[in-house]
Amino acid sequence: MAGIYIYSDKKDIVAELINFAKESEKEACVITFKQEDAEAIKDFGAEKIYVLKGSSQVPENYGKAVAELLKKQDADLFAVGATARGRDIAARTAGYLDCGMVSDVSSLSYREGTVISQRMMYGGTVIQSEELKGLCVVTVPAGKFEAAVGGETVEIITIDVEADSRVRLIETAPVLREGTDITAVDTVICVGQGLDKKEDLQLAQGLADVLGAEIGCTRGIAEERKWLPVERYIGISGAVIKPKLYISMGVSGQVQHVVGIRDSKVIVAVDLNEKAPIFRAADYGIVGNMYEIIPLLTEALKNA
């Protein structure tokens, strides 16, 4: 059966993609790999729910089986939630189908057999618009569509398939996050390579304490200097945040970083270099020595 086929390991995105299929006036067919995952979404409003049953516990190992199902069902589009698992299975499926794929769309619509999409390039400097015809694959980040409001419970169709058993799951461990998730807080203080030494993180902590903020950083601070855990770095390959207030100190503002903050409500930058690109991305900026500015700011905001 034609229709928009959907997969995500996040239930919220499944609901959003079901709504996208409905907006596109197509049947929403959700693919899962476990009976319980199918049960969990059976009243989300999809027209069909499949369980592809095979021997692997790793969804990504079903790329070939998904490609075969899509071909057999004459699917219009495979829309996948843009998570680590989702991107992998989406690209593997596209590889087996030798079809087009657009990753991490910033906007998406489907009209008369054509996918119209936009996505960011060059770390967010450029927006690229693309069109794809025929069966193709897109990955869609969370929050691009309203969630479907739900519907009648539908029948779950189980198909026995062959999974790629060559990649064997040994162990799963929860990600140990140090402190609070920086994508979930209202205020983030971000440190960059303008910071001279690790002990100076104390400066950021002082301001963070006053504002009830969490500390984030640029990629260099986490991956090169290793002063903060990688979960704390903000940017295209790290965390993408949208706090109410973002304050940077000693951050130059390379595009790869800025793309991770650009949905923040208010962006504030403190840096010595007047020409630093961060000021072009900021609502408010102070050109000055952060070792002087940040303690003053901390004091000034104490009674805010």
């Binding site: 030798d98 400097t125 618009s129 069109e131 991305a281 900021a282």
Partner: peptide
């Protein structure tokens, strides 16, 4: 290619850009 690129354009940050560069730190 399987995808047809229809437009490439720059992204402009629409921010207030109020930058305080002159005067005393305080």
């Amino acid at each position: 290619p399987k995808t047809d690129v229809t437009e490439i354009k720059g992204y402009l940050m629409n921010r207030k850009n109020i930058i305080l560069s002159e005067g005393e730190a305080a």
